[in-house]
Each structure stands twice: as structure tokens, then as C-alpha cells.
Simulated scan of single mutants.
Amino acid sequence: MATLSHGEIWRAIDALAERFDMTPSAMARMAGLDPTSFNRSKRGSAETDGRARWPSTESLAKLLEATGVNFSEFAALTEQATFAPASARKAAPLIGLAEAGREGLFDEAGAPAGEGWDEIAAPDLGEGLFALEVTGDALAPVYRDGDRLLVSPTVEPRKGDRVVAKTSAGEILVRELGRVTARTIELTPLGGRGEERLLARDDVAWVGRIVWVSQ
């Protein structure tokens, strides 16, 4: 396995901050860390006698948990010289999470359809994206009232990813994807809070991966 360099690790952290339209300081606060944890001034400067300063494994673990990004995706960011700038935006359909279970809002693949959608400007992270606005505190502390979840119905979710799933009965679930088999899909509660759901594949209309959050 290739070893990640000091520069690659910090480049991936910066790319992640751009993906979430945040400063490194704001992203550190979101992860429950000291706001200066990812500051550029601490990566190797006069303050550290020019020595390279690496983020701790604990800091990285908290960062990935807070953003819902798994390590393989984070490692992929180290290979990118640049990431799509935060200024790159496209219109994405928006609807309240509480309304999303209404009939006719999605097609069979989980793409937005029908009427009742608003629009917001969102990062251009692929095709078919839509946004769900959280209301209330049912998903706290992971997601709070007013947060907007940008969901991709085309990106294949992997175990550990945060997802939005719609059941064939019309229920909308925001969970982490657990074990997936030929017959079942496991959905685990965010942050360990709530009930775990083991659903038959026939009972799941679609699963979309959460690729960005506006907090």
C-alpha cells in the first residue's frame, strides 16, 4: 500500500473543506476539534521550526465521522491536484425532508419528479442531485434543523456511507448503510441513536448517498 505524504494528507483535508463549502476552521469545529486543528499556519512553519506537522489519527477519524466520508474516498482526494472550487454551483431541486415521502416526488430510480420542488444553488458533484431540508431535531446532533442534505441517486453507496432511503411504503429514512446482501439492506442509526432497520430489498424503493451537507 502506498504511503500518503504530508502534502497529500493536507491537500485532501483542504479538498474536503471545499466540498462542504467550509473553511478548515469551520470543518474542525463541526468535527468537535479545536478550530485551529487544520489551520495552514500549523502545517509546517516558523511556529514548528519548519518541521512538517501531521494531523493526528484521532483528528482524522473525527473528521471522517462528522462528514460521512469513508477513508477510501478521503484517500482518493489525495490524488487530486485540485478539487472543484466552492464557487462551482448548479441548481438542485429542494424539498423538505418531512414532505419527501409524498407520492409522485421521485421516479423509480430515486430521481426528482413531479411538482412541489423548490431550487437551491449547490456544489456540482454529479448528475441527478437533489436536496432535502431537515426540520426539527429528530436527526440531531448529526443533522440539525435547517441543514440541507445533498443526495445523489446515481453514486453507488458503500457500507458506512450516510444515505437517504425510501421504502416501498413511502417512508423516508436517513441512516448509515450497513450490510447489504442479495436479499436484505441494513440501515443503522446515525451516531448510534435510533432503531436499526433490516429491510428486504423488495421493500426498498431506492437508496441515495448523501454527498454534501449545508450546515
Rank of each mutant, 00 (worst) to 15 (best):
L149I: 00
P141G: 12
G191P: 07
A138Q: 09
S37E: 15
R40K: 12
E156W: 05
L77S: 03
A61F: 02
K159L: 03
L4D: 04
R158I: 06
V142T: 14
D203I: 13
G146S: 07
A169N: 03
A88H: 12
L199W: 10
P112Y: 02
A165C: 08
R162Y: 04
G160D: 01
M1N: 13
L132M: 00
D203A: 15
G101L: 04
T188P: 05
I210E: 03
T36P: 09
A75K: 00
G128S: 10
E133R: 15
L16A: 04
R11H: 11
L150C: 02
L77K: 03
L105Q: 05
R201I: 14
G7D: 15
A46V: 15
I9D: 01
A100F: 05
V211W: 13
A140V: 10
R183S: 12
E99Y: 14
T154I: 01
Q215R: 15
T67E: 03
N70A: 01
D137G: 09
L149H: 00
T3V: 14
G170T: 06
W206Y: 08
F83C: 01
E196R: 13
T67R: 01
A75Y: 00
L199S: 12
P55G: 00
S25Q: 10
L177C: 06
G32M: 13
E133D: 04
T57I: 12
K159H: 11
T188M: 09
A61I: 04
D203G: 11
T181N: 03
R51L: 15
S5F: 08
E8V: 03
L4Q: 05
A31P: 11
T36C: 07
I13G: 07
F83Y: 13
E156C: 00
G104F: 11
R29E: 13
L77E: 02
A46P: 10
T48F: 02
G126N: 13
A91W: 07
A140D: 11
M22F: 11
N39W: 08
A52V: 08
F71C: 02
A17M: 12
I95M: 02
W54R: 12
A98F: 10
M27K: 03
G136S: 07
A92Y: 01
S37M: 07
P189R: 07
A75I: 00
R197H: 13
A76D: 12
M27G: 06
A2V: 10
G68T: 01
T57Y: 07
G44F: 06
R40T: 08
G101Q: 02
L33E: 15
D161N: 14
P189Q: 09
G104T: 15
A84F: 09
L190T: 05
G160W: 05
R175L: 04
Q80N: 13
D21E: 13
R179F: 08
A17C: 11
F74A: 01
S214D: 04
A66K: 09
A76T: 10
R148V: 08
A100S: 10
A138I: 05
D145I: 00
A169I: 02
A86G: 14
A169K: 07
R148S: 06
E186M: 06
E18D: 14
G178I: 14
D34T: 11
S45A: 11
E99H: 15
K159T: 10
